[in-house]
Nucleic acid binder design. Structure first.
Lengths: 263, 263
DNA sequence: CGATTGATTGAGTCGGCTCAAGATTGGTGG
DNA sequence: CCACCAATCTTGAGCCGACTCAATCAATCG
């Protein structure tokens, strides 16, 4: 799952759906000076309480997640990230990290200097707009997660997060509509993302498989019955603001796939 | 709890702590043309699924909250808002409302036309920055709520939200450090904000009162032992980014009050 | 091949839920 | 000023979804 071109034009392309960008805007993004790094799974990119680093990271390949801890040591994963996503743009503007950012799999990131980004958003308001929209969609996903963890039972929570990740993976072009996908999260991580224990995640996944909604063996999970899973997970993709995310959802067929209509 | 001056200079003042603003920037905010409206408690300002309205609302007095529903009809409150806060700036940039916005108490709002705001952020990048930071802090609060609802028990959840609202009320100048405050939320609303039932909220509040952490009679709740409540609620105000919120937290005394140090 | 990480399963417990009934409170109309 | 109503708060009893504790199995890796 890599976009290994030398420049960041794939990212510029992505951002151009968040706000309308001129050719010059896109070019400015694509040509952003950056340094690529490869990090092992579980490496911390940022730790809660730290001041911002001198650069911001764009995820090129692999997955990452953000989490927070209670004083008791319980962990809550608050978001997962796919290639093409900016991981810590908020640290361009906030003075302290309020959560930790960690690689979920082995990842490749592009580090862009804060000064460079500051300059970019000052000189190119349209780009600033696109970045801003990016953050607003982030916030919308957080709201949905509050609902997921606060008001849905285990079965629905797991179903919901599987739906979300599947749809976002499609949006990022990582999988096709019907394709099975491997979710590189342990059951413990899935529990930390849904406010459950790994034991209960295990039992819930088993139940979903028994009911024919998903298939799984060991690490890999695939969606066997999209419509049912969507219904069980109370998944309505409205909150992902897909119209402002990806060109992949323009076609009628795709619209059908992601629709919230009757199953 | 009203700031009934004719212009929005109190809001300009507030925003100037989110990003540095010039005199002209502040003046531009203060002089924003707007229409004031008074709304009864429980009035909807926005409903999930609607396209954006032609104006955005700034809360002048009273409180408001945002919520989402599951398909089963369970409600999750995802944030509460105090005077001086922009309630729906995201609808300036997003094409659809992903949640509902409702008045908690009787409120007064200032409606500002989207066009006017669009114009403001295009011509004044520093103001756009301040608004952007505002949204980033919102997102940080959502993350904390995911943690609260996902990984804390009932006692800690209630304690946490009480701490958050108390600190934010102080930041907004609505109460002083030692002052009791009335939380205008029913126990059912408190449950919807913490992912609990009203019955369990009732019992948890009683327990907190018995232990001397809070005092309550009927609708009004006051904090009796801040340090203990903070510890029980695992409340660390880091996520509120207070240094970027309010001048009220500049003094050493206040810093002590909000500190996360040993109680 | 041992060691480690993650998945799986069983048994028992409990925090928070549901259902249901009163008790308060605040507001309203007569 | 009082009676009444509706919303909210309060309390009890019983239940259950998810947790804890504790093995065991499976896969991966130096």
């Amino acid at each position: 799952m890599s976009s290994a071109s030398a420049d960041l034009s794939f990212f510029a392309e992505r951002m151009s759906h968040r706000a309308s960008l001129s050719e010059a805007d896109r070019a400015a993004i694509a040509e952003l000076p950056h340094v690529r790094r490869r990090l092992n799974a579980n490496t911390y990119l940022i730790r809660e309480g730290e001041p911002p680093r001198s650069s911001c990271s764009l995820l090129i390949s692999g997955m990452a997640f953000r989490h927070k801890l209670t004083v008791e040591g319980a962990r809550q994963i608050v978001s997962v990230h796919l290639p093409g996503e900016l991981l810590d743009l908020q640290h361009l503007l906030l003075n302290i990290a309020d959560h930790s950012l960690q690689a979920l799999t082995e990842v490749e990131v592009a580090d862009i200097e804060r000064d460079v980004l500051q300059d970019l958003i000052l000189t190119r308001p349209a780009v600033a707009n696109a970045f801003w929209v990016d953050g607003l969609i982030d916030a919308s996903v957080f709201r949905e997660w509050v609902l997921n963890v606060g008001r849905r039972d285990a079965r629905a929570r797991i179903a919901h997060i599987l739906c979300e990740i599947a749809v976002r993976m499609r949006g990022a072009g990582l999988i096709s509509a019907s394709e099975k996908f491997v979710l590189p999260m342990t059951q413990e991580q899935l529990g930390d993302a849904t406010g459950l224990t790994s034991v209960h995640v295990n039992r819930t996944i088993k139940a979903l498989a028994t009911d024919g909604l998903i298939e799984h063996s060991g690490r890999s999970i695939s969606i066997a019955n999209w419509q049912k899973l969507r219904r069980v997970g109370d998944f309505n993709p409205l909150y992902l603001h897909l119209d402002q995310v990806s060109p992949r959802f323009d076609s009628p067929l795709d619209a059908l796939f992601i629709s919230a209509g009757p199953a």
